[in-house]
């Protein structure tokens, strides 16, 4: 199965005066369809910069990023815009909903602006919002919804164009534990068949990361560790659950 997302020796350097800061250093990874990857790391480890480069928002200093066969480092702004519109769904920590629009309008707006007719997307938008448990809140504005509801609207918005990959930056960062878990379940469900969205999620919460199939640990711009739920046998040998393994790695990383 071809990877949805692939990076090769991806590097990002920032120049601060005479110093060069390497925010992301030679990162190579790939994400398969339906795979849920969590990127963990302390503040300043480069995980957000990596996410931005994976979304085509930051230009790489060197290396390459390919999404669905399209090399982002070679693409112009128009191509990147089209890519974000069609191939990537975004979920943010602070939801980033348009305050003047209702839940339904927030979900449909990007597709409408992209030139789709409302009649063509109405049913799917309603279906997604229903799936998110928001059928009673279609016409409510963001400020009339709870944090969890707002994030579910944002997920529905991200899923509407059926993008192959979702990028989530601390999606539960501003939610309480229970609501956060609900949101994570929804995201994980999106990665399962038949939807099979891939998901790259940035977090510093091991519990959140434990929902992923694979967790990458970053420090000083490099991927310094990886735990995958595919390593079940190894974990059994160690008498350790997947989440415990993540927790252990995280503690090592933060030490």
């Amino acid at each position: 199965m071809n990877p949805v997302l692939e990076t090769k020796l991806l590097t990002k350097e920032f120049h601060t005066g005479s110093e060069i800061l390497c925010a992301v250093n030679s990162v190579t990874l790939n994400v398969k369809p339906g795979e849920f990857i969590a990127i963990m790391g302390p503040s300043g480890s480069g995980k957000s910069t990596l996410l931005h480069m994976l979304s085509g928002l930051e230009k790489a200093t060197s290396g390459s990023v390919t999404i669905c066969g399209m090399d982002l480092t070679e693409s112009n702004d128009e191509e990147l815009t089209k890519l974000r519109r069609e191939k990537i769904g975004f979920v943010f920590q602070f939801f980033n909903l348009i305050p003047v629009l209702s839940a339904y309008e927030n979900v449909t707006l990007p597709m409408l602006m992209a030139g789709h007719k409302e009649s063509a997307i109405r049913e799917r938008a309603r279906f997604l919002l229903e799936q998110m448990g928001l059928s009673a809140h279609l016409h409510k504005r963001p400020h009339e919804l709870s944090g969890g509801q707002q994030q579910r609207v944002a997920i529905a918005r991200a899923l509407l164009p059926t993008p192959p990959i979702l990028m989530a930056d601390e999606p539960t960062g501003s939610l309480d534990t229970k609501t956060g878990l609900e949101v994570l379940r929804l995201l994980r469900n999106a990665c399962k068949a038949p939807l099979q969205h891939s998901l790259v999620l940035v977090t510093h919460d091991p519990k959140v990361a434990s929902f992923a199939n694979r967790v990458l640990f970053m420090r000083d711009g490099r991927i310094v560790g990886e735990v995958s739920d595919m390593d079940q046998l190894q974990l059994l040998d160690l008498n350790m659950s997947f989440s415990a393994a993540i927790q252990q790695q995280w503690e090592v990383l933060m030490a």
């Binding site: 979304s55 815009t81 974000r84 975004f90 943010f92 980033n96 348009i98 707006l109 990007p110 992209a114």
Partner: peptide
Amino acid sequence: RKDFSTLRLLGIKGSQ
């Protein structure tokens, strides 16, 4: 600013 940049992120063109 945030709304507009979100729209940009979601694939809305600068010209739009």
